[in-house]
């Protein structure tokens, strides 16, 4: 039995994530939950989220999920999405600075209002829409993802990992930024696979089959 816990801490559109997982893996049992037992017993964990990191961290602490995530992330295939990726790192520039879970070394930085493209046009923030990934390493999660595939992003902050070997893909928005990270059984993406049509579903399918190696 393939079971997944989608961690529910009140931040964002979790229905889309669970529906997309159901779509790619109808036989799996998918739980949108904040119940520690369900999360602990699941074969895999998805950690989604949109919005502000400070509120997200406050909710995780209130629900006593912060320590549980730190413990569970060592044990099974783990997928972070968007804010769920940024929260894995030490800190963020958001709201004048706030702390993350500190599982991976690095921090989330603001795109800023002065980003320009190659022709000098000011880039809008949030970075909202479909951008191409450059995959920087082979990974089971990239199986069947064609080079140059576009994924749907919506974010104003991006992660800057301290260790380059954590970077699994980059994307360009007035300069390269980290779009995906991997560290043993942990994979995390800045974009929304649940909103990225066929290629996004492919990535979620890969996750459902990944053994975390």
């Amino acid at each position: 039995m393939n079971s997944v816990a989608v961690i529910d801490y009140g931040m964002g559109n979790l229905r889309s994530v669970s529906k997309a997982l159901e779509h790619v893996c109808p036989e799996a049992s998918i739980h949108v939950t904040n119940d520690p037992t369900v999360i602990t017993e699941a074969d895999r964990v998805v950690f989604p989220g949109v919005g502000a990191l400070r509120e997200a961290m406050a909710e995780l602490k209130r629900l006593s999920l912060d320590d549980l995530i730190k413990q569970q992330i060592k044990q099974k295939p783990f997928l972070g999405i968007c804010l769920g990726m940024q929260a894995l790192f030490d800190s963020s520039e958001e709201n004048g600075g706030c702390e993350g879970l500190g599982i991976l070394p690095g921090r989330a930085r603001y795109f800023g209002q002065n980003r320009v493209d190659k022709t000098g046009h000011r880039l809008k923030v949030p970075h909202m829409g479909w951008s191409m990934l450059s995959l920087t390493r082979d990974h089971p999660m990239w199986h069947g993802i064609a080079p140059g595939s576009r994924f749907y992003f919506v974010h104003s902050y991006y992660v800057e990992p301290e260790q380059d070997d954590h970077i699994a893909a980059v994307c360009d928005y007035g300069g390269a930024f980290c779009a995906a990270v991997s560290a043993t059984n942990v994979f995390a993406v800045q974009f929304h696979p649940e909103k990225s049509q066929a290629m996004g579903l492919r990535l979620l399918d890969n996750f459902m089959q990944w053994n975390g190696q």
Partner: peptide, 11 residues
Amino acid sequence: VEQVAGEIFIP
């Protein structure tokens, strides 16, 4: 919205 979001995986 529930029906569409359950089947269509774009924003």
